[in-house]
Simulated scan of single mutants.
Amino acid sequence: MDRIAIIGCGGSGKSTVARQLAQILDAPLIHLDTLYYDKQWNPVPKDELAAQQEKLITGERWIIEGNYAGTLPIRLAAADTVIFLDLPARTCLWGIAERRWRYHGGQHPTDGVYDRITWSFVRYILGYRHTMRPRVRHLLQEHGAKVRLITVTSRRHTNRFIDRIKRETNR
């Protein structure tokens, strides 16, 4: 696992898993939220986001966490491993509630996440498995034929996966 893309619904734990893996594997970590948004939390132009990712994927090793299905094919073309956090909506909603409690809102300095809970974000989470998951699966089939796909479906499954990686790397 040298080039890892971590994807999943908001609140699924992408940033947490990415930080843990980056520490265990001693790999550079990129949070797509830090690329997608400017300092005023406005989205950057899509071509700029794509260009930034095109540069990042040339690295020998990396962990890139974030969704952005429009640029997922860029990451899939270079990744050797994709970790898909396919957790239930209630777990993801709990995840954003925990994040709000922990960080008290605002932009997180370490991962670029802007802790903003809106009704549209809640609707996105509630509908993710019906709308985005099929799109992500299609993109994985179309562009990710050579990647090792690891799908986790619960927090417990995620923790067991991280523990296994720790054991395998003796960390």
Results as ranks from 00 to 15, higher is better:
142 E>C: 05
127 G>I: 04
108 H>T: 12
49 L>M: 11
16 T>N: 07
89 A>Y: 06
162 I>E: 05
32 L>W: 01
62 W>G: 02
87 L>S: 03
77 A>L: 13
49 L>G: 08
165 I>P: 04
21 L>G: 00
13 G>L: 02
85 L>A: 04
150 I>Y: 01
36 Y>Q: 06
21 L>H: 00
63 I>T: 08
92 C>R: 11
99 R>M: 07
108 H>D: 14
73 P>Q: 01
110 T>Y: 15
126 L>S: 13
4 I>E: 01
165 I>K: 00
83 I>F: 00
116 R>L: 13
69 A>R: 14
86 D>I: 07
72 L>A: 06
85 L>H: 03
113 V>H: 15
1 M>Y: 01
97 A>H: 10
62 W>D: 00
168 E>S: 11
111 D>V: 05
113 V>P: 12
20 Q>K: 12
61 R>K: 08
61 R>C: 00
102 R>M: 05
20 Q>E: 12
68 Y>V: 01
125 I>C: 06
23 Q>L: 12
81 T>Q: 05
34 T>D: 13
103 Y>Q: 11
148 R>K: 15
11 G>M: 02
168 E>Q: 11
70 G>D: 14
111 D>I: 04
100 R>G: 14
56 L>Y: 11
38 D>T: 07
26 D>G: 06
113 V>N: 15
148 R>M: 13
154 S>G: 04
42 N>R: 11
1 M>F: 04
33 D>V: 05
36 Y>S: 05
17 V>N: 06
154 S>T: 03
147 V>D: 09
157 H>I: 07
122 V>G: 03
63 I>R: 02
20 Q>Y: 09
49 L>H: 12
2 D>K: 14
136 V>P: 13
73 P>L: 00
15 S>H: 01
162 I>L: 10
79 A>G: 03
56 L>A: 14
149 L>E: 06
40 Q>P: 05
130 H>V: 13
94 W>R: 14
132 M>E: 08
43 P>L: 03
133 R>W: 09
76 L>A: 09
114 Y>W: 15
99 R>F: 03
6 I>G: 00
126 L>H: 09
15 S>T: 05
134 P>I: 00
27 A>L: 13
140 L>G: 05
3 R>F: 06
88 P>I: 03
104 H>T: 10
94 W>V: 11
27 A>H: 13
93 L>Q: 10
69 A>P: 10
140 L>S: 04
29 L>P: 05
48 E>W: 09
103 Y>H: 12
21 L>M: 01
102 R>H: 08
127 G>L: 13
70 G>Y: 12
149 L>V: 09
115 D>F: 04
48 E>K: 12
36 Y>F: 10
114 Y>C: 15
145 A>Q: 15
169 T>I: 07
112 G>M: 06
61 R>G: 00
165 I>E: 00
154 S>M: 03
130 H>D: 15
117 I>K: 05
152 V>G: 05
147 V>W: 11
161 F>M: 08
169 T>W: 09
95 G>S: 08
165 I>D: 00
101 W>N: 13
157 H>L: 09
48 E>H: 10
166 K>I: 11
144 G>S: 12
105 G>Q: 10
82 V>C: 12
57 I>E: 04
129 R>K: 06
95 G>L: 01
58 T>C: 11
30 I>G: 00
84 F>K: 03
67 N>R: 07
162 I>A: 08
81 T>I: 01
162 I>C: 04
156 R>D: 15
50 A>Y: 11
131 T>A: 12
87 L>V: 04
28 P>I: 07
46 K>T: 10
